[in-house]
C-alpha cells in the first residue's frame, strides 16, 4: 500500500516537473489517434453503405418474398449457365436477416418485429464485364418471381475508389503522427530520468529493484498515452455525432444506407485507447533503456 502511494506520488511529481513536454506528448497522441480513429469511423460509415458492392459485385437480384424453392432454383440455374455472369452468391432469408440486424442495430424495436421469413432471398452477381451490368439487370428484372434488381450506382463505385485512397493517405498521416508522439514520449521520459539521475543513481546503489526504479516512469508514459487517447476517444465520438447529423438530412437519397452506429464508435474508441496506452508504455521503456542498463 505504501509502495502504491510512493509510485503515485513519484509519477505525479514527474509529470508536473515536465509539464510542457507532457502536454506536447498528450496533444500529439490525441491528434494522431483522432486521425486514426476518424478514418476508421469514416471507413465504417462507407462500409455500411457499400458492403454489398465489393469484390466486383455490380448487381443484386431480390426474389419476391415467398418465392418457392423451385422458382429460386430456376434463377440460380439461369445464373449458373449465363456466360455473362462471372460469379454469384446466394443469400438465404437467414443471411438477409443477419444483414438486416446489423444494419438496424440502432433500432431494436424494428429488428424485434421482423422475422427472417419477412425478408427476400437474393443473389449477388458479378458480371464478366462491368458494361454488362445494365443488360443483365434488365434481363433478370423481367423474370417471374424476381421482385427487383438493384445495381451499384456510378457514384458508389467512384466513392469506393476515393475512400480507398483517402484511407491510405489518412492512415499514413496517422502513422507518421503516431511515430512522432512516440518520440515525444521517449524524449519526455529521457528528460525525466535525466532530471532525476542522482536519485536513480542512489536507488541503484542501495539496491532498489529495476522495476521499482522503472514503474514511476512507465506510469508517466502510460498516463500521457492514456490521456491523449482519452481526448481522441472524445473527438471520435463527436465526429460520430457530426456524421450522423449530416447523413440524417439525406435519408431519402443514395446515401440512405450510409450510417455509423454507436457500437462502431465505441469499438474504434477502444482500439484508440489501447494504442494510446501502448504508445505510452513502449515510449517509456525505450526512454528508460539507456539509463537503467547494468
Amino acid at each position: 500500500m505504501s509502495r502504491l502511494a510512493y509510485f503515485v506520488r513519484e509519477t505525479l511529481i514527474s509529470l508536473r516537473r515536465n509539464l510542457l513536454m507532457t502536454i506536447a506528448g498528450i496533444i500529439t497522441v490525441a491528434i494522431s489517434l483522432f486521425l486514426f480513429g476518424g478514418i476508421l469511423l469514416v471507413s465504417a460509415t462507407v462500409d455500411h453503405g457499400t458492403q454489398q458492392w465489393k469484390h466486383g459485385i455490380e448487381l443484386e437480384i431480390f426474389m419476391k418474398v415467398g418465392a418457392t424453392h423451385t422458382e429460386v432454383q430456376t434463377i440460380e440455374n439461369a445464373l449458373k449457365t449465363d456466360p455473362q455472369v462471372k460469379s454469384y452468391k446466394y443469400l438465404s432469408q437467414l443471411d438477409a436477416y443477419n444483414i438486416f440486424k446489423k444494419d438496424f442495430s440502432d433500432q431494436p424495436a424494428l429488428v424485434e418485429s421482423t422475422k427472417p421469413s419477412d425478408l427476400p432471398e437474393s443473389f449477388r452477381v458479378a458480371p464478366t464485364k462491368a458494361e454488362l451490368t445494365q443488360p443483365l439487370a434488365d434481363a433478370y428484372q423481367h423474370r417471374p418471381s424476381v421482385d427487383t434488381v438493384i445495381t451499384a450506382a456510378k457514384q458508389i463505385k467512384s466513392l469506393l475508389t476515393a475512400t480507398r485512397w483517402i484511407r491510405l493517405v489518412f492512415i499514413s498521416m496517422a502513422t507518421v503522427l503516431l511515430a512522432s508522439s512516440l518520440f515525444l514520449i521517449v524524449n519526455t521520459i529521457r528528460l525525466a530520468t535525466f532530471a532525476r539521475r542522482r536519485e536513480i543513481e542512489v536507488m541503484k546503489l542501495v539496491g532498489a529493484s529495476n522495476w521499482f526504479v522503472r514503474v514511476p516512469f512507465m506510469a508517466e508514459g502510460l498516463v500521457q498515452g492514456a490521456i491523449g487517447a482519452g481526448f481522441a476517444f472524445g473527438l471520435v465520438w463527436i465526429l460520430k455525432i457530426v456524421i450522423t447529423n449530416l447523413l440524417g438530412h439525406h435519408s431519402q437519397n443514395l446515401f440512405s444506407t450510409f450510417r455509423v452506429t454507436s457500437s462502431d464508435a465505441l469499438g474504434i474508441g477502444l482500439i484508440v485507447l489501447v494504442i494510446g496506452a501502448l504508445i505510452g508504455v513502449v515510449g517509456s521503456i525505450v526512454g528508460l533503456r539507456r539509463f537503467l542498463e547494468a
Binding site: K204, L205, V206, G207, A208, S209, A294
Partner: peptide, 14 residues
C-alpha cells in the same frame, strides 16, 4: 543475473 544485482547491493553499503 542482472535482476539479482539489487539483492547483492542491499548487502553492501557504499
Amino acid at each position: 543475473g542482472s535482476w539479482k544485482v539489487p539483492q547483492l547491493r542491499r548487502n553492501i553499503g557504499c
